[in-house]
Amino acid sequence: MRSVVDFAPEDVILDRAAILGSQGIPEEAELTENFERIYGEAIELFKELTEPAGIICGISISGFEEVFRGEGLNEPSNPVEDIYRKSGYLSLFAVTLGAVLSEKVTELFDSGDYASGYMLDSVSSYAADKLSDLAARNLQLELTAKEPAESQWRVLSYSPGYCGWNMSGQKKLFEVLRPQEIGITLNESYLMSPIKSVSGVLIAGSGKIHEFVSSYHFCDTCRTKSCIERMRNL
């Protein structure tokens, strides 16, 4: 079933330590007054301008097989394929923080206020990931409520461009999910607009299905290595 999900701006919890961490700043770092001012202003701007929205669409394993195959450019061996085949439930998803935030970031840079532009962009990137986590959490709660006996549901999101799922997979995903309804479009390079959007598949199953050893050849060049923390938090 395909449905639009309403999020409220306050649904996106902004964790200061995590935002600063994403900028490479350790928790114990002493920050300048300028930095604190810019950070505070960015948080206020974010709360004022964010327009979070999402769309999800449940899909069968065979249906997803076709979406995942996409343009046939995935890595021959990848963790996503192993994980989705063991899943109990799958849902395509896309979430966005809306266009206004990205426009504001551009405006700040264009006006020469680089520091504020950078900070708002950084806060927004963090928030976009959190929104995707929220979509996964909501599905986990929904599945657990439906099947209380099966309380071991663990839902994680996987996106084209990561873990061997080629970026071109966006094309098929967009054909089925149609996130244009919430304002997300795709360009020829499979880049989403608004930029602060995340799309992919929510894979539900026991925590165990999400575990894998990150020793695929593409893991060497992966910058995020976020799979390690995701698996740790299962």
């Binding site: 900028q23 490479g24 700043i25 350790p26 770092a29 920050l31 300048t32 300028n34 930095f35 810019i38 950070y39 020469g112 206020d113 680089y114 520091a115 950078y118 900070m119």
Partner: peptide, 18 residues
Amino acid sequence: NHDIFLPDVLLAARAMNG
């Protein structure tokens, strides 16, 4: 040396550019 961070550098860069 991690005594300051990117936003501080960007403020300085703005002053430089002006």
